[in-house]
């Protein structure tokens, strides 16, 4: 870990109408560090990663990727939002994995992993194809390159989504509850891919409700509630020695339950036909 953080989040605030979703969040993520974010539903975890990835604009504070201000630039003494093209370029330097996978439904698995490499990062189609096949193999899906996303199980779709995000060599990977939409028996295949990435030194922020996983994979763990970072520390500190009563209350709700818990699970069952 070097000194300058890959991602720096400073006093970030975000409101939806009157509702304060992020209320002054500070967080640094260093090279190779894995930060897991836990907290009750509605505490602002998704909003945080979406703001980092510039899918939502923030209302205050600032974020930096490798020291570069995200989403804004200084022009003649005033901060102004970046034009779309440069915003897109900043997004292209981060990888995002969504709870609902969001694979491009009209493209094959292979094209999902190839496209951004070519259009955003200017790789040649052959190079992109080779890289895509390598990544699909890494997530254990080399046989599914020509399949359509809807033909895959949820776990397979999410592994493709991870390959797709990795294809552009992101500086940091952001996961928003990558297993919450999965049937319980499919959770492990996704988590093992994420764990593999962590061992490979990828810098990551992982929002998750899988407590044992949050503990195992993390270098540092963050507990959020009501748009604030309430507590942050090593997994040992957070899980074995929670300082705040709120974290203790939150963790107690998980103890003794099965590994897979999510209060945001969609009602319909995944179709895997």
């Amino acid at each position: 870990m070097s000194d300058a953080p890959v991602l720096r989040i400073r006093n970030v605030r975000k409101q939806f109408g009157d509702h304060v979703a992020l209320d002054g969040v500070d967080l640094d993520v260093h090279e190779g560090e894995v930060v897991t974010v836990i907290g009750p539903s509605g505490s602002g975890k998704s909003t945080l990663v979406r703001c980092v990835h510039q899918l939502e604009s923030i209302d205050g504070g600032a974020m930096y990727l490798d020291g570069e201000l995200l989403g804004y630039e200084m022009r003649r003494g005033h901060l102004r939002p970046l034009p779309d093209r440069r915003l897109a370029a900043q997004r292209g330097r981060m990888g995002m994995v969504f709870q609902q996978f969001n694979l491009f439904a009209h493209w094959s698995v292979l094209r999902n992993v190839i496209e951004a490499q070519v259009t955003v990062h200017g790789r040649s189609p052959e190079e992109a194809r080779k890289e895509a096949l390598r990544l699909l193999e890494r997530v254990g899906l080399s046989g599914k390159a020509d399949a359509h996303p809807r033909m895959l199980s949820g776990g397979q779709q999410q592994r493709v989504a991870i390959a797709r995000a990795l294809a552009t060599n992101p500086r940091i990977m952001l996961f928003d509850e990558p297993t919450s939409a999965l049937d319980p028996e499919l959770v492990d295949e996704v988590l093992s891919v994420v764990l593999d990435l962590a061992r490979g030194g990828m810098t990551m922020i992982i929002v998750t409700h899988e407590m044992s996983f949050a503990r195992e994979v993390a270098d540092r763990c963050v507990f959020m509630e009501e748009g604030r970072v309430v507590e942050t520390g090593t997994p040992k500190e957070i899980f074995d020695n929670p300082a705040s009563p709120r974290l203790r209350a939150f963790l107690s709700r998980f103890s003794g339950r099965a590994a897979h818990i999510s209060d945001e699970r969609p009602l319909e069952e995944e179709t895997t036909s």
């Binding site: 990888g95 995002m96 969504f98 969001n102 990062h121 552009t168």
Partner: peptide, 14 residues
């Protein structure tokens, strides 16, 4: 689905 647009933007598409 709005997630498709999110994913496209997240990949760095303009």
């Amino acid at each position: 689905d709005g997630g498709q647009r999110d994913a496209a933007r997240a990949m760095g598409f303009t």
